[in-house]
Design a protein around this nucleic acid. Sequence first.
DNA 1: ATGGTTGCTGCGCAA
Length: 257
Amino acid sequence: MKIATWNVNSAKARLPLITDWLRLTSPDVVLFQEIKCETAVFPGAAFEELGYHVAVVGQKAYNGVALLSKTPAEDILTRLPGEPEDEQARYIEATVAGIRIASLYLPNGNPIPGEKFAYKLRWMDRLYAHARDLLAREIPFVLGGDYNVIPQDRDVYSPADFAGDALAQPETRAKFRALLNLGLTEAYRALHDDDRAYSFWDYQAGCWPRDKGLRIDHFLLSPQAADRLAECVIDRGPRGGEKASDHTPVILELRDV
DNA sequence: ATGGTTGCTGCGCAA
């Protein structure tokens, strides 16, 4: 089973690029972040035409996540538990082919200090609690998306430039490590030891042509999902095209059972 | 380079 995650930075602005890529790559499951539209105006029909079932949680202008699947998604959860008053559309999770799969858009958290960083840390605590709950229930799962976390200095072109950034703070990294220490596997790093394996390049200051990127889009796997881990690759192709998102897709391959 | 770009919105904000 091939599962892709992609922060598309507007589903509508990126629609032709996305559909071209789906035809080319044909993932079984696709996780989008930053669709930047309300649920009702998400261009789901364009994906249904390609054979996908579509589950969406959107909001006006900001955030928004979606989960596409070639087989139907069941038991769809549209919010991360733990803070009922949180209205931001950052989490969707469903069962596809017997596995819980989530598309998540973890808060950016800048600037620091401030309410946005506090929200990021709370959100990470909620993700931790939820992952722990799924583990306790022995439910196999894959948590994919834009984590807005630079796990290690090697995952950014210039650690010094990000020393004051929410994506690389010690507290941010500690909470990400805590997730791993629950027994989760970070798919890309489990298989690859290379540097410059970026998934995001800022639009500004020629970051893409200069390869000044960050690795912030990740897949975290439960032990049962990790047993099936076959490959994880970053597809830099879509970042180089016209009207590109600032993120590029990451693709996970799980062996069939 | 106290710069630079993009999307959505509504004449700024988030990334």
